[in-house]
């Protein structure tokens, strides 16, 4: 009997502790330098230091990051602000436990050496998975009448000439296009951040439901992750090594050069324009801007407030 009690107690603690301290984190996309800070925190033991056991599981073709969250197969994920706001608007409350991006990285790249905004009515590639809200707002605002071509990957379409321009992330698709031999001039790249659409992007989100019950865990996870990002900003090459490890483990079709460029850009985007520092926080002004735009152009039905996104 005593043995059983002991066993049960142990089991209880194991389960409890497991339930309490284990967290599955799924970045929104495949392994890349975009999520370097988390890999660093994992590899450098920052999570362990705060007493949180983290498993990083990347989304697959069959199971996207969001689905994993919905099914609680993952407890935390990264999302772009606008995307998160869309999701909240669709009825799933989310909490932003760590904001990493302080700037907008989206661009429109034109195939021809012309200002993308001058190409009215052309085919513009857009991600099928749900980024690009700002672009839609902007194009409607500017009356660009773009024909949005949704696809999983715009690079090949762009390269083949099936589309005239494409949305791209300055840290990701942009370099892929350059790597494909494209030479862009300043004129053929439209940066949203330079035209009044500088809305933050990546952050770590949990469902509010989960968050309410695991505030401490969330705080720890956030703290360790932030520490990971700080470390990454100070040791880019070592961080790159860590990233390439994850890349290789996950058989991702990329190379060190692209990852290095991505890491550089992502770290740069984490520096707030106004303060010049890594702030790791949601900016209410950006939230308001995004919300207003999306409401105006009917991407969301109701305003999503700063309070809705953040804890308390």
């Amino acid at each position: 009997m005593k043995k059983l009690v002991l066993l049960l107690t142990l089991l209880f603690f194991a389960v409890f502790s497991r339930a309490q301290d284990r967290i599955v984190f799924t970045p929104q996309w495949t392994a890349q330098a975009q999520f370097a800070g988390y890999y660093v925190a994992q590899e450098k033991g920052f999570y362990r230091d705060v007493g949180v056991e983290v498993e990083i599981v990347h989304p697959s073709a069959t199971l996207s990051a969001l689905n994993r969250i919905r099914r609680n197969e993952s407890q935390a994920t990264t999302l772009q602000l606008c995307q998160a706001m869309e999701i909240i608007d669709s009825g799933i409350p989310l909490v932003n436990i760590l904001q990493t991006s302080m700037n907008n990285a989206m661009i429109i790249a034109s195939r021809r050496d012309v200002d993308p905004l001058s190409q009215k009515g052309v085919r513009v590639g857009i991600w099928s998975v749900g980024f690009g809200q700002l672009a839609i707002c902007m194009s409607e605002k500017e009356g660009l009448d773009y024909e949005w071509i949704r696809s999983a990957s715009n690079v090949n379409l762009f390269v083949k000439g099936a589309i005239d321009a494409t949305l791209a992330m300055s840290y990701s698709e942009y370099y892929q296009l350059v790597q494909a031999g494209y030479e862009f001039s300043d004129r053929s790249i439209y940066r949203f951040c330079d035209h009044g659409y500088n809305v933050q992007e990546d952050g770590v989100y949990m469902t509010r439901q989960y968050y309410e019950r695991h505030k401490e865990q969330a705080r720890k996870f956030s703290e360790a992750s932030r520490r990971g990002w700080e470390w990454a900003s100070e040791h880019p090459e070592e961080t790159l090594d860590i990233v390439m490890k994850y890349v290789r483990e996950n058989h991702i079709a990329t190379n060190r050069t692209l990852q290095r460029l991505m890491l550089q850009e992502v770290l740069r985007l984490q520096v707030d324009r106004e303060s010049g520092a890594r702030e790791y926080r949601l900016r209410p002004d950006m939230v308001k801007l995004a919300s207003d735009l999306m409401v105006e152009y009917k991407l969301i039905g109701h305003e999503v407030t700063f309070g809705q996104l953040t804890a308390e």
């Binding site: 073709a61 085919r123 099928s128 949704r150 999983a152 099936a162």
Partner: peptide, 17 residues
């Protein structure tokens, strides 16, 4: 739902081109 072939290159390319 997990394989939305519409957004695949092979499908879209000929459509667009």
């Amino acid at each position: 739902d997990h394989y939305e072939y519409f957004y695949m290159d092979w499908y879209q390319m000929v459509k667009l081109l």
